[in-house]
Design a protein around this nucleic acid. Sequence first.
RNA 1: UGUCCGAUGGUGUAAUGGUAGCACUGCAGAUUUUGGUUCUGCCGGUCAAGGUUCGAGCCCUUGUCGGACAACCA
Length: 565
Amino acid sequence: MPESENEKSRKLSGLNFIEAIIEEDLYNNKNQGRVHLRFPPEPNGYLHIGHAKSICLNFGLAKTYNGLCNLRFDDTNPEKEDVEYVDSIMEDIRWLGFEWYDKAYYASDYFEQLYQWAEKLITAGKAYVDEQPQEMISEQRGVPTRPGTESPFRNRPVEESLDLFRRMRAGEFTNGAMVLRAKIDMASPNMHMRDPIMYRILHHHHHRTGDNWCIYPMYDWAHGQSDFIEGITHSVCTLEFEIHRPLYDWFLDQLAEGSYRPRQIEFARLNLSYTVMSKRKLLELVNEGHVNGWDDPRMPTISGLRRRGYTPLSIRNFADRIGVAKRDNVIDVGLLEFSVREHLNQVAPRVFAVLDPLKVIITNYPEGKVEEMELQNNPEDPDAGSRKVAFSREIYIERDDFLEEPPKKFFRLGPGREVRLKGAYIVKCEGFEKDENGRITEIYCTYDPSTKSGGSGAGRKVKGTLHWVSVAHAIEAEVRLYDRLFLDEDPAGHEDKDFKSFINPDSLKILQHCKLEQSLETATAGGQFQLQRLGYFCVDKDSREKQLVFNRTVPLRDPWSKKNR
RNA sequence: UGUCCGAUGGUGUAAUGGUAGCACUGCAGAUUUUGGUUCUGCCGGUCAAGGUUCGAGCCCUUGUCGGACAACCA
C-alpha cells in the first residue's frame, strides 16, 4: 500500500491513550522526538502479574516507537529493600522476554545529585528544615476538606535550614529529629502540595550505598528527578500517583532549565478476579503458610506463574489483550487461562497419562503381546513428529471414563458400550468387577482387531475416544492439581471479612501413583506437555530421578463437565 | 460540604462530531481418533437528564455512581 500524503499526520485511531500521547509528542517533536521510558520497581518484594502489565507496557512502548526503556530500582527506603528482590526482579523481567537499556539504574545512584539540588532549593527559599515531631506535622497537614496550618519553622532563615540540613547529612541527629520540607502551599486542596517531606533521617544500612547516608529522599523528591537525570520522556505509572503529578511537575520546574521535561502519565493497574494483588497480602499468604512460598504455583507472582507453567509469550499476549486505560478494571482470570492454553496448544507435545487409574483387561488380546502404537506428538504442529507408545492386554483408563449406568450423552465407557482407545483399537465393555464397597476394580473389554489406528478398518466411528496407558509399561508420578486460590471473585473486596476466609481449601490436590506413558521417563524440570484430554502440565523442579512431579498449569476447556456440574 | 480522575455488552478494550467494532465469556451448529483445536452463526452495550449540531458514545451543563488523596512508604 502506497504511503498517502497523510503519512506525517497523526494517526491516533486504534491506539491506547498513552500511544496517542506519544504519537502527539512525536508529531510535535517534543524532547527532540525521543521516546524513553522506564520501569521503576521498588526492590521490596516479588513481581506479580500486575507488574507484568506495566513491564509489557513500558518495554513494549519503547519497542513500538524505537525508543528506550530503563530498569530503575526505586531504592530510597533501605528499611524495606534488599538485593534478594533486586535479583528476582531482574530475573523475572528477563524471563518475560524484555531487556532494559544500557544497565540497571538505581535511584540510590542519584543521592548526591539529589542532595545538591535540595540545598539549591533551600537556598532559593523553596525548602526548609522542620524540627517538629511527626505527630505535629501530621496534625498541621489538615484533612483533604480543610486547609492545613503552617509550621512555625516554615519561615526560618535560609542559613539556618542549610546548616541544619548539612548536619542532618553529617549524622548529628537521631531518626525523626527533623525533616526537610518543600515550601509550597499548606492550603492546597491537594494534600501532596502541603509542604511535602523531601528528606527524613534514617540511620539504616542501604543495600547499595552502605552507610554513606543517614538521610534518604522521599518518593516524590526522588522519582521525578531520577526521571529527569535519565532523560525519561514518558514516565508511566499507576493511577494512585495521579494526585502526585502537580508535585512531580513542581519539583521539575524548580530545577529544570531547558525545554526538556519528563511527563508523568497514569494508567489503571491490573486487577484479576479470584486473586489478590497487593504485596502486603501476598506476603501474608507466604508468611502464614497458606502457600508454599513466593513461587507457589497458585500465586499471581511472575515466579509463581512460571512455576505453574505459564509461558512468557502467553503473559505478553495477555497483557496486550487487556489493553490499557484509566478506568478501574477487573480482568477475568479466565482470560489469562485462555492465553496460556492458546500458546501451549501450539507448542506442547501431547502425551498419555492416567491420573486416577482404573484397570482394563482386554480379554481377547493375546497375553504377553505388545504393540508399539504410533502417536502424533502434536496435531497442531506436523513438524513435532510422532512417537511409539506400548499397547498391551492390560491398560489403565481414567476412572471417570467409565460409568456403570451412563446417561445417554456420556460418550465414554459403560456396560456394552464401545469406545476408541486413541491411537489403538475400538474396544467394547463386556463386564466389570466391584469390591465389597461397590467400587469398580476392573473392567473387561474385547477389542476389534480390524479397527487398529491407521489400518484399513480404522474408519469406523464411535462416539468416544479415551486415552490410556499400558499397565506393564507405565511409569509413576506425582501430579499436583492446582485450582484458583480463592473461592470469591474479589476476596479483598469485603469490608466485613478477611480475604483469607475465602481461600479455596481445594486449591491444591496432590495425586500419587499416576500412570504415565513411558516416553515421559526422560522429561526434565520445566518441560511442558498436554496430558491428552486432561490439560496442560509442566514438570516441577521438585522432580527427582524416577520421581517426576507434574503441575497442572490449566485444564483443557471442558464444556461437558461444565454442563454436568 | 474539598480536589483530582473515571463511567461503552457479563468482562476488557476500540470508535478522536458521521454505519457502535474487536477479544474473552456464554449459547447453537459444523469438523474432529483429545467432549481439545479449528470453523460458522447467535445473544448482548454507549450511567441519567438537558443543551450545541443536519448529525453526539465523543463537545457543553447538571446530576448519579465508582475510584484516588490526610505514611518521616513507593
